[in-house]
Design a protein around this nucleic acid. Structure first.
Length: 255
DNA sequence: ATGGTTGTGTTACAA
């Protein structure tokens, strides 16, 4: 089964790009981020017409995540555990095809320092705690999404320029590393070394110059990693008309 | 060249 993550930066504007990509790439499961709409405005029927089931955790204007799967979607939960006062729509989790999949839109955290960076780090601490809980079941799971973290210097075209950015701060990288140290596998790094970007800024001709960063990740539990047979980043959608600034990241698990 | 772009939803804010 092919599992993908894609920050679409508004599903309303991006729907033609998303339907094109679902039709051609044929992923089995996709988690979407930054849908930027409330549940009732999500184009559920258009996506169901392509053979997908849909679960949505929306929000007006900002954030919002969605879960698409060709197989039935079971046990849907929304919101990351650990803070009932957090009202930002950044997490959706469900089971499909016997695999639990979490869709993540991790806070950006800029500017540093400040409340937004504190919120990012607290959110990452909650994610680490939740991953620990999931690991106790010793079952296959995937935590995929826009992590807003460049794990290492090789994950940005300009390490010096990003040194003080929330995406590259030691506190952010340390928490990403904590996730790996729990025993999770970065599906891209299991097959690909060196620069391999998933995001290019709309500004300054970043795409044309390949001035990208890698911030969209798929982290696999040991039981999922045992079934991992491939991964990649599909640059094609980023080069089309009216693209998202992110492009899909995917992995394939043996059935 | 202290710049530039996209999206939501109003003319600010987030990324």
């Amino acid at each position: 089964m092919k599992i993908a993550t894609w920050n679409v930066n508004s599903i309303k504007v991006r729907l033609p790009r998303v339907t094109d990509w679902l039709s051609t790439f044929q992923p089995d499961v996709v988690v979407l981020q930054e849908i930027k709409c409330v549940d009732e405005n999500f184009p559920t029927m258009e996506i169901e017409d392509l053979g997908y089931n849909v679960a949505v955790h929306g929000q007006k204007t900002y954030n919002g995540v969605a879960f698409l799967s060709k197989a039935p979607i079971e046990d849907v939960t929304t919101g990351l555990p650990g803070d009932d006062s957090d009202e930002q729509a950044r997490y959706i989790e469900a089971v499909t095809n016997g695999v639990r999949i979490g869709g993540i839109y991790l806070p950006n955290g800029n500017p540093v320092p400040g409340e937004k960076f504190d919120y990012k780090l607290a959110w990452m601490d909650r994610l680490i705690a939740h991953a620990k809980q999931l690991l106790e079941w010793e079952e296959p799971f995937v935590l995929g999404g826009d992590y807003n973290v460049c794990p290492q210097d090789e994950d940005t075209f300009d390490p010096e320029g990003f040194a003080d950015d929330a995406l590259c701060m030691p506190e952010s990288r340390n928490r990403y590393r904590q996730l790996l140290n729990l025993g999770l596998t970065d599906a891209i790094r299991a097959f690909h070394n060196g620069p391999y970007y998933s995001y290019w800024d709309y500004q300054r001709g970043a795409w044309e110059k390949d001035n990208g960063i890698r911030i969209d990740h798929l982290l696999l539990s040991p039981q999922a990693a045992d079934r991992l047979v491939g991964s990649g980043i599909d640059r094609e959608p980023r080069g089309k008309e009216k693209p998202s600034d992110h492009t899909p990241v995917w992995c394939e698990l043996r059935d």
